[in-house]
Nucleic acid binder design. Structure first.
Length: 566
RNA sequence: UGGGGCGUCGUCAAGUGGUAAGACACAAGACUUUGACUCUUGCAUUCGUAGGUUCGAAUCCUGCCGCCCCAGCCA
């Protein structure tokens, strides 16, 4: 079952370009895209945008394919554990690369040959300036750079030096292969960019075979070309790199994919870069890459998000070139939409308040039938135990109820969902004056939740039998940061805006027996509270739920408004 | 005094010369054994701004303003 919104076909400027190319038979009618992550961290919701775009386009076009290619040209940052996690995440999101799994490192030999070819064409040279000197020679944003004194080495010397770089004869940083383009270009990327650097680091796939590694600009365009990619989609910050992407392919006269850039995703109240997410993980601010507060794919999965919800979210936000910052409510809405249809309803009390129903026989217990879904009878019903002692939500009782509060209060009558009407007769407090227990009476005629005399009660509350309920721990998650854009303050580190209340663990929640029996990974709705799932660390004797998202809460809004007025 | 982008509702986003889609948010109301869901209604005489072309401009032209990205041997 799925709630994918296919009826609204995605349409954006990239798909428009591709459709036009197809009409003009530009690539013999082929569409080949690729998703090219660097295996240096976990995928996040921003990557999901790119995954949905690239794999989505491939899926939408007959014969379209999307490659998964690991852009592993910097072994000092990359690990095999990340390539495994990334594959897992892409699959989980619902996409399939078939046999099109590649690595830039697969092409190291070819890339090396292309570099040699460039040298032979007089289009690349070995520069022996230090990193610092290269920076100085590069010029500034407003001033042109200067030619390297090594720029006019002979082809023979360049060839010799390059092969010796490869052979490991030189120290890191002593030499570098550069493209010979234009040191006065207004585009810094064209000022003789680095192509190969010496890195005496072993690579997660090629081991110690190489001690020189190609740079992104060189490796990426050629990898695209080698794989016969037709449309190479990337984010806006690579716009400046496109002339270089084109330069390599034009000079080498090889298949030339079209690079198209789109705006990356920004979401309220979070950060969206692998570097920053890594800081949160490494600094212990969260409990790993899959911490449910993290907007990583694995974090969202553990939190209880569905692939469908994430895909729908990506469709909703669209693809364009302007900078954007999406409301968190859009993401939340996408999971509510999906789970509203799919999730079984159960009852669970987060902050228990005990009620003793004084006119309910002490030794009586009964099973009450409760529907699993209010709109979908096919989801059936279950039997829920009821007895004289029950728990209700502490927040559902107020000793002095304000206007419009239609839950429980002294002398008030409410409905217990699918059970009975009860009336509060007495409030019991502890020494500090805190309400610790309620005494009520019930109306036996109201069994099932309606009264034969037709009288109305405004409030309906969830409840759990105290004798039968199962104790559970529940993690309530809130946004990770307290401000919309934690990265906007240039004087403060983004971590200063971490929300101390982003995780609140409730240890003494009580849930109905059937809730405790759900499968890991299955989502349920605790009525009136929100959507939850079992955490991956949940055990039979220590049940742990994660709150995925709350239900929309009009009452809280009303209360806040009343608060403002007072 | 460099180069590259972008400016349409609070937030996203359609629109590509014919008179401003949709989504989220928000507001009002209906329904309701979840204050949920669902439903109804409202929400840009206006498209950064000033001119120009045109019968007609968010769409074409010009000037101006604002915002973002680029000086890794990261991707």
């Amino acid at each position: 079952m799925t709630t994918d919104k296919k009826e609204t076909a995605a349409s954006d400027f990239i798909r428009a370009i591709i459709a036009k190319d197809l009409r003009n038979n530009k690539n013999n009618g082929r569409v080949v895209t690729r998703f090219p992550p660097e295996p240096n961290g976990f995928l996040h919701i921003g990557h999901a945008k790119s995954i949905c775009l690239n794999f989505g386009i491939a899926r939408e076009n007959p014969g379209g394919v999307c490659h998964l290619r690991f852009d592993d040209t910097n072994p000092s940052k990359e690990e095999d554990a990340y390539v495994q996690a990334i594959q897992n995440d892409v699959k989980w999101l619902g996409f399939d690369w078939g046999d099109k799994l590649f690595y830039a490192s697969n092409y190291f030999n070819q890339l090396y040959e292309y570099a040699v070819k460039l040298i032979n064409m007089g289009k690349a040279y070995i520069c022996s300036l230090s990193a610092e000197e290269i920076r100085q020679y590069r010029g500034t944003l407003t001033e042109p750079g200067k030619d390297s004194p090594y720029r006019n080495r002979s082809i023979e010397e360049n060839l010799d030096l390059f092969s010796r770089m490869r052979a490991g004869e030189f120290a890191e940083g002593s030499h570098i292969l550069r493209a010979k383009i234009d040191m006065s270009s207004g585009n810094l990327n064209m000022r003789d960019p680095a192509i190969y650097r010496i890195l005496k680091v072993s690579h997660h796939r090629t081991g110690d075979k190489w001690c020189i590694y190609p740079m992104y600009d060189f490796a990426h365009c050629l990898s695209d070309s080698i794989e016969n990619i037709t449309h190479s989609l990337c984010t806006l910050e690579f716009e400046d790199h496109r002339p270089l992407y084109d330069w390599f392919l034009d000079v080498l006269k090889v298949h030339h994919p079209q690079q198209i850039e789109f705006a990356r995703l920004n979401l309220d109240y979070t950060v969206m870069s692998k570097r920053k997410l890594m800081q949160l993980v490494d600094g212990g601010y969260v409990k790993g890459w899959d911490d449910p507060r993290m907007l990583t794919i694995s974090g969202l999965r553990r939190r209880g998000y569905t692939p469908t919800a994430i895909r729908n979210f990506c469709r909703t936000i669209g693809i364009a070139k302007r900078e954007n910052r999406i409301d968190m409510t859009v993401l939340e809405n996408s999971i509510r939409d999906d789970l509203n249809v799919l999730a079984k309803r159960v009852m669970g009390v987060l902050k228990p308040l005990k009620i003793i129903i004084e006119n309910y026989p002490e030794d009586q217990e009964e099973m009450l039938e409760v529907a699993n879904h209010p709109k979908n009878p096919e989801m059936g019903s279950r039997m829920v135990p009821f007895c004289r002692e029950i728990y209700v939500e502490h927040d559902d009782f107020m000793e002095e109820p304000p206007k419009k509060f239609f839950r429980l209060g002294p002398g008030r009558e409410v409905r217990l969902r699918s059970a009975y009407f009860i009336t509060c007769t007495r409030v019991i407090k502890d020494d500090n004056g805190l309400v610790v227990e309620l005494r009520c009476t019930y109306d036996p005629a109201s069994k099932g939740g309606s009264s034969p005399d037709g009288r109305k009660v405004k409030g309906t509350m969830h409840w759990v039998s105290a004798r039968h309920g199962v104790r559970a721990e529940i993690n309530l998650y809130d946004r990770l940061f307290t401000v919309e854009n934690p990265e906007s303050d240039k004087d403060k580190d983004f971590k200063e805006f971490l929300n101390p209340g982003s995780l609140v663990t409730l240890k003494d929640c009580i849930v109905e027996p059937s809730a405790a029996a759900i499968n890991p990974g299955q989502q349920v709705q605790f009525e009136r509270q929100g959507y939850f799932c079992l955490d991956s660390t949940s055990k039979q004797d220590n049940i742990i739920f994660n709150r995925i998202v709350t239900l929309r809460d009009t009452w809280t809004k009303i209360r806040k408004k009343q608060g403002v007025k007072q």
